[in-house]
Nucleic acid binder design. Structure first.
Lengths: 237, 237
DNA sequence: ACCTGAACACCGTTCAAGT
DNA sequence: ACCTGAACACCGTTCAAGT
């Protein structure tokens, strides 16, 4: 919801300033972005804020809730405007926004995909359910029957998260290396067992995530159009 | 690769039997299945095996490698036969197999989606790369150009993992409750803010994951056929 | 009523001391 | 050369003692 934050804004809270949940969570996010999930411990976060770690339990009941809070904070960066003129264009834009958000906060992605697995839908932090509600709204307003909107959402969000996981996995091991095999560390694979993968090194090394996502969304939207015949727009493909 | 294991087989190794990596990993998997990822600690696993925890470092250099080993062990249950008569049917079957595997080992799913994010492609455990290699083989043998095979793989595997994450998220909070809203805990959501989601409670409560996956795969395959015009099979839809 | 920090029951991992 | 377990540097969380 809230737009891009000025990074210097509320960065390190004044020494004796009163803490707020926002302050605690944004410090937690900074820590995760900079050093990874494992670095986010109650004690370390307390140290980062210049406070007794025990004081943090006022803002998150336990570490799991702290992690949920970080998820919420990040998803809050995603803007979904329900009054969409064109639902397909809207879904495409949201997909690209979420992709960029994931690239901005790669260390948070495991949280986004993993935390919901340990909490039933209705007990999840509201901030993480808002995108779901808003996309359903978007689709229903565009004329889908609610049950169809749910199917579209599932296929869309499923593919979207799948793509993000795929893209983040194909990280470069050594960007200075200009031999494709070496850039991805693929030379470590036994050639007999992995001929296809090794042969694809040059293709893998020049991966264009935005283009791939865009094409995937196109495929999905055209498939969905063919199967669900959405209102107000003729099926593609 | 190896078929379903007899659960009593190599369950608890004889007290002073020599440990093997297989024995250690299957004990680790049992622990994760029964009590979740957090229960898998070096000390607890040592206790489970009746051994000094330090001895485990002979079979996994550290906890991260132990987690990778569990991922490998689970993915090993997935059979991919490269000599496929019909690549579409094959992809569909693999999707259902992986779905069932995820339902059998829900606590391992976070590992499957998360571990690859912290290791470059070429340095990953071979067991986790084998499905990728085999699916590429399958597609290339079916006539796809290697680069196209990679695109198909990405769209397919992305959607597949996305679906699994979606499905595992929609767990029932109280199976004995027959009011849909309560089954999912959706009554906890503020009605003003989440009208769509609450209204969909009955649909959510009767989720059929296998059917949804099957339909999603159909949509994807028809979309892929339209965009990539694979050899030896006319485009669907 | 709030804040503080000592204490408890754990972690992963190193490494010296045994065999 | 291998195995063992003491020791180190951490964890999350509880709760009694202070204010």
């Amino acid at each position: 919801m809230s737009p891009q934050k000025d990074p210097t804004d509320k960065a390190l809270p004044r020494k004796r300033e009163r803490l707020t949940r926002e302050l605690v969570l944004s410090a937690a996010l900074r820590l995760v972005d900079a050093e990874g999930l494992d670095a986010l411990t109650m004690r370390r976060l307390g140290q980062e804020l210049g406070r007794d770690p025990m004081g943090l339990y006022r803002y998150a009941a336990n570490r799991a809730e702290l992690l949920d809070g970080v998820s919420e904070l990040v998803l809050d960066e995603l803007a979904i405007t329900p009054d969409a003129p064109d639902w397909q264009a809207q879904l495409r834009r949201i997909a690209h926004d979420l992709r960029l958000l994931a690239l901005r906060h790669p260390n948070v992605v495991p949280l986004l995909v993993t935390r919901p697995l340990s909490t039933p839908l209705g007990l999840r932090p509201l901030g993480t359910l808002r995108p779901l509600e808003q996309i359903l709204s978007l689709l229903i307003d565009a004329g889908f029957a609610p049950a169809d909107a749910l199917h579209v959402y599932r296929a869309y969000y499923g593919y979207l998260y799948g793509h993000i996981l795929n893209e983040l996995q194909e990280l470069i091991v050594d960007p200075d290396e200009n031999e494709a095999l070496l850039r991805l560390g693929l030379h470590r694979l036994p050639p007999k067992e992995f001929p296809r993968l090794r042969a694809l090194a040059p293709v893998l090394a020049t991966y264009d995530g935005a283009a791939e996502l865009d094409q995937g969304i196109s495929i999905l939207l055209s498939g969905l159009s063919a199967h669900l015949s959405p209102p107000g727009s003729q099926p593609l493909g």
